[in-house]
Protein backbone atom coordinates (compact mmCIF):
# COMPACT_ATOMS: atom_id res chain seq x y z
CA UNK A 1 0.00 0.00 0.00
CA UNK A 2 2.89 2.28 0.89
CA UNK A 3 4.41 1.62 -2.53
CA UNK A 4 1.21 2.70 -4.23
CA UNK A 5 1.16 5.81 -2.07
CA UNK A 6 4.73 6.65 -3.07
CA UNK A 7 3.94 6.06 -6.72
CA UNK A 8 0.97 8.43 -6.64
CA UNK A 9 2.96 11.05 -4.79
CA UNK A 10 5.81 10.89 -7.29
CA UNK A 11 3.39 11.16 -10.18
CA UNK A 12 1.67 14.21 -8.70
CA UNK A 13 4.94 15.91 -7.81
CA UNK A 14 6.36 15.25 -11.27
CA UNK A 15 3.27 16.71 -12.86
CA UNK A 16 3.37 19.77 -10.60
CA UNK A 17 7.07 20.30 -11.31
CA UNK A 18 6.77 19.78 -15.06
CA UNK A 19 3.79 21.99 -15.77
CA UNK A 20 2.81 25.49 -14.68
CA UNK A 21 -0.61 26.57 -13.54
CA UNK A 22 -0.51 29.29 -16.15
CA UNK A 23 -0.11 26.80 -18.95
CA UNK A 24 -3.19 24.95 -17.70
CA UNK A 25 -5.17 28.20 -17.66
CA UNK A 26 -3.91 29.00 -21.15
CA UNK A 27 -4.93 25.56 -22.36
CA UNK A 28 -8.45 25.84 -20.88
CA UNK A 29 -8.81 29.37 -22.25
CA UNK A 30 -7.75 28.26 -25.70
CA UNK A 31 -10.21 25.38 -25.69
CA UNK A 32 -13.14 27.53 -24.62
CA UNK A 33 -12.38 30.20 -27.21
CA UNK A 34 -11.81 27.62 -29.89
CA UNK A 35 -15.10 25.89 -29.21
CA UNK A 36 -16.93 29.22 -29.34
CA UNK A 37 -15.18 30.25 -32.56
CA UNK A 38 -15.89 27.05 -34.45
CA UNK A 39 -19.55 27.82 -35.30
CA UNK A 40 -18.49 31.28 -36.53
CA UNK A 41 -16.48 29.74 -39.37
CA UNK A 42 -18.31 30.17 -42.69
CA UNK A 43 -18.24 26.44 -43.42
CA UNK A 44 -20.22 25.67 -40.29
CA UNK A 45 -22.67 28.51 -40.94
CA UNK A 46 -23.32 27.48 -44.51
CA UNK A 47 -24.29 24.03 -43.34
CA UNK A 48 -26.36 25.23 -40.41
CA UNK A 49 -28.76 27.61 -42.11
CA UNK A 50 -29.38 30.17 -44.76
CA UNK A 51 -29.60 33.93 -44.25
CA UNK A 52 -32.12 34.86 -41.58
CA UNK A 53 -32.78 31.33 -40.44
CA UNK A 54 -34.94 28.64 -41.98
CA UNK A 55 -33.36 26.12 -44.29
CA UNK A 56 -33.98 22.48 -44.91
CA UNK A 57 -34.06 20.73 -48.26
CA UNK A 58 -36.73 22.33 -50.40
CA UNK A 59 -37.33 22.63 -54.10
CA UNK A 60 -36.49 26.13 -55.29
CA UNK A 61 -39.18 28.32 -56.80
CA UNK A 62 -38.96 31.07 -59.37
CA UNK A 63 -41.09 34.07 -60.23
CA UNK A 64 -40.40 33.52 -63.92
CA UNK A 65 -39.69 37.23 -64.24
CA UNK A 66 -36.12 38.45 -64.73
CA UNK A 67 -37.12 41.75 -63.12
CA UNK A 68 -38.06 39.82 -59.98
CA UNK A 69 -35.01 37.61 -59.43
CA UNK A 70 -34.43 34.98 -56.78
CA UNK A 71 -36.24 32.14 -55.07
CA UNK A 72 -39.42 33.23 -53.24
CA UNK A 73 -39.21 30.11 -51.08
CA UNK A 74 -35.81 31.21 -49.76
CA UNK A 75 -35.25 33.69 -46.97
CA UNK A 76 -32.62 35.39 -49.17
CA UNK A 77 -35.26 36.50 -51.71
CA UNK A 78 -35.04 40.30 -52.02
CA UNK A 79 -38.62 41.12 -50.98
CA UNK A 80 -38.11 39.50 -47.56
CA UNK A 81 -35.66 42.15 -46.31
CA UNK A 82 -37.86 43.22 -43.39
CA UNK A 83 -39.89 40.07 -42.81
CA UNK A 84 -40.35 38.24 -39.52
CA UNK A 85 -42.34 35.04 -39.89
CA UNK A 86 -43.05 31.90 -41.91
CA UNK A 87 -42.91 32.28 -45.69
CA UNK A 88 -46.32 31.62 -47.29
CA UNK A 89 -44.48 30.24 -50.33
CA UNK A 90 -43.55 27.25 -48.15
CA UNK A 91 -47.02 26.95 -46.65
CA UNK A 92 -49.27 26.42 -49.65
CA UNK A 93 -49.58 30.07 -50.64
CA UNK A 94 -47.42 32.30 -52.81
CA UNK A 95 -45.37 35.42 -52.22
CA UNK A 96 -48.54 37.48 -52.76
CA UNK A 97 -51.38 35.16 -51.77
CA UNK A 98 -52.46 33.23 -48.70
CA UNK A 99 -52.68 29.45 -48.30
CA UNK A 100 -56.18 27.98 -48.68
CA UNK A 101 -58.23 28.32 -45.52
CA UNK A 102 -56.50 31.46 -44.29
CA UNK A 103 -57.54 35.09 -44.52
CA UNK A 104 -55.18 37.92 -45.46
CA UNK A 105 -54.84 40.65 -42.86
CA UNK A 106 -55.65 44.13 -44.19
CA UNK A 107 -53.51 45.67 -41.45
CA UNK A 108 -49.88 45.21 -42.38
CA UNK A 109 -46.25 45.89 -41.69
CA UNK A 110 -44.76 47.98 -44.52
CA UNK A 111 -41.12 48.51 -45.47
CA UNK A 112 -38.89 49.01 -48.48
CA UNK A 113 -36.51 46.53 -50.11
CA UNK A 114 -34.00 47.05 -52.91
CA UNK A 115 -34.64 44.95 -55.99
CA UNK A 116 -31.26 43.65 -57.23
CA UNK A 117 -32.55 43.66 -60.82
CA UNK A 118 -32.84 47.46 -61.03
CA UNK A 119 -31.46 48.67 -57.68
CA UNK A 120 -34.62 50.61 -56.92
CA UNK A 121 -36.35 50.59 -53.56
CA UNK A 122 -39.80 49.00 -53.70
CA UNK A 123 -42.46 49.44 -51.05
CA UNK A 124 -43.33 46.02 -49.68
CA UNK A 125 -46.42 45.17 -47.68
CA UNK A 126 -45.99 42.12 -45.43
CA UNK A 127 -49.61 41.03 -45.17
CA UNK A 128 -49.99 38.19 -42.69
CA UNK A 129 -52.24 35.24 -43.39
CA UNK A 130 -54.47 34.37 -40.47
CA UNK A 131 -56.95 31.80 -39.27
CA UNK A 132 -54.87 28.59 -39.18
CA UNK A 133 -52.21 27.76 -36.62
CA UNK A 134 -48.56 28.63 -37.32
CA UNK A 135 -47.31 27.11 -40.56
CA UNK A 136 -43.89 26.30 -39.10
CA UNK A 137 -42.12 26.14 -42.47
CA UNK A 138 -39.36 28.47 -43.72
CA UNK A 139 -39.00 30.71 -40.68
CA UNK A 140 -37.40 33.92 -41.92
CA UNK A 141 -36.40 36.79 -39.66
CA UNK A 142 -34.42 39.58 -41.31
CA UNK A 143 -35.87 42.70 -39.71
CA UNK A 144 -34.15 45.45 -41.75
CA UNK A 145 -35.60 48.77 -40.60
CA UNK A 146 -37.27 47.16 -37.60
CA UNK A 147 -37.51 49.47 -34.60
CA UNK A 148 -37.92 48.62 -30.92
CA UNK A 149 -41.37 48.25 -29.41
CA UNK A 150 -41.37 51.82 -28.14
CA UNK A 151 -42.16 52.65 -31.77
CA UNK A 152 -45.06 50.24 -32.22
CA UNK A 153 -45.88 51.36 -35.76
CA UNK A 154 -42.35 50.40 -36.87
CA UNK A 155 -42.03 47.15 -34.94
CA UNK A 156 -42.70 43.82 -36.60
CA UNK A 157 -42.73 41.62 -33.52
CA UNK A 158 -46.43 42.29 -33.06
CA UNK A 159 -49.06 39.95 -34.34
CA UNK A 160 -50.31 41.81 -37.42
CA UNK A 161 -53.41 39.60 -37.72
CA UNK A 162 -55.67 42.59 -37.12
CA UNK A 163 -58.95 43.25 -38.86
CA UNK A 164 -59.34 39.56 -39.66
CA UNK A 165 -61.89 37.14 -38.30
CA UNK A 166 -59.21 35.27 -36.40
CA UNK A 167 -56.04 36.65 -34.81
CA UNK A 168 -54.22 33.33 -35.20
CA UNK A 169 -51.05 33.79 -37.28
CA UNK A 170 -50.21 31.35 -40.08
CA UNK A 171 -47.61 32.87 -42.45
CA UNK A 172 -46.45 36.09 -44.15
CA UNK A 173 -46.60 37.36 -47.73
CA UNK A 174 -44.50 40.13 -49.33
CA UNK A 175 -46.50 42.19 -51.80
CA UNK A 176 -45.12 45.07 -53.89
CA UNK A 177 -47.38 48.10 -53.48
CA UNK A 178 -45.21 50.83 -55.01
CA UNK A 179 -41.80 52.24 -55.81
CA UNK A 180 -40.21 54.53 -53.22
CA UNK A 181 -38.66 57.85 -54.14
CA UNK A 182 -34.91 58.27 -54.02
CA UNK A 183 -33.98 60.53 -51.18
Amino acid sequence: MAGFDKFAERLTRNLARGSSRRSLLAWIGGTVTGAAALPVLPVSRAVASEHGGGGGARASQSTGNIQDPGDPASCDYWRYCAIDGFLCTCCGGTVSSCPPGTEMSPITWIGTCTNPADNRAYIISYNDCCGLSSCGQCMCNRNEGDRPQVRPQSNNDYNWCLGTESAVYNCSTAIIIGVALDS
Partner: peptide, 27 residues
Amino acid sequence: PRQAHIDYMLKCQGCHRPDGTGSAESA
Protein backbone atom coordinates in the same frame (compact mmCIF):
# COMPACT_ATOMS: atom_id res chain seq x y z
CA PRO B 1 -48.12 64.96 -53.82
CA ARG B 2 -46.17 61.92 -54.97
CA GLN B 3 -43.82 62.17 -52.01
CA ALA B 4 -46.82 62.67 -49.71
CA HIS B 5 -48.49 59.57 -51.10
CA ILE B 6 -45.35 57.47 -50.70
CA ASP B 7 -44.85 58.77 -47.16
CA TYR B 8 -48.45 57.78 -46.47
CA MET B 9 -47.78 54.29 -47.81
CA LEU B 10 -44.65 53.91 -45.70
CA LYS B 11 -45.77 55.51 -42.46
CA CYS B 12 -49.57 55.29 -42.25
CA GLN B 13 -51.14 52.84 -44.66
CA GLY B 14 -50.16 49.68 -42.77
CA CYS B 15 -52.75 50.50 -40.11
CA HIS B 16 -55.00 53.17 -41.67
CA ARG B 17 -55.30 51.07 -44.86
CA PRO B 18 -54.82 52.29 -48.44
CA ASP B 19 -58.28 53.90 -48.50
CA GLY B 20 -58.05 55.45 -45.03
CA THR B 21 -60.82 53.34 -43.53
CA GLY B 22 -58.60 52.13 -40.68
CA SER B 23 -59.74 49.46 -38.25
CA ALA B 24 -61.50 49.43 -34.92
CA GLU B 25 -58.68 47.55 -33.17
CA SER B 26 -55.64 49.54 -34.20
CA ALA B 27 -56.16 52.79 -36.08
